[in-house]
Amino acid sequence: MLELIVLLIFMIAAGIVAVEIRDLLASVIALGAVGFAVAIGFIMLAAPDLAIVQIVIEVLSVVFFVAVILKTTHVDSTLGRPYKGEDVFTFVVFGLFALAFVYFGVRLLINLAPMSRELGQVASHYLTQGLTETGAVNRVTSVVLDYRALDTLGEATVLFTAVIGVLAVLRLEGRKK
């Protein structure tokens, strides 16, 4: 558990570096450090399925960001400008949201059962009956593609919608009209 806390502190530090540093390339590298720390955390919590996806997506997004930065500019010109009136509004709203988030998070941690110590009814059904009902040895796949396949269809629809949005915004034809 101590390694996980150290990892979380490292992620917070890397996130602060990613926001505050002036060189955008270093900022992207700090962002990649956060993503790989998330992948290591998934491995520590015994979720290799998520860790594989996280590593691949993190590599791809860092490559995208680095390609964009090499084509455009290194320097973040928005840092260090003086605060204006609308910034105060942003601070107040974000502070209220953070307070509410911490309050409900603490209440949830007190009331919920501790993670992965006792199984609920549904989870124990998946673990005991999953192999005979679906035939899949990997129980994560048996949940994702058999018991909860409708959720996976929704996830695929989200990806499809994202691609349609990118294609509609950045299409080659129809620009000149």
Binding site: D49, V53, V56, L60, A136, V137, N138, L145
Partner: peptide, 14 residues
């Protein structure tokens, strides 16, 4: 994907 960690999303991304 039905035997070892991974599946459609991870393999497709690779």
């Amino acid at each position: 994907g039905h035997l070892s960690p991974g599946g459609g999303f991870a393999g497709g991304a690779i």
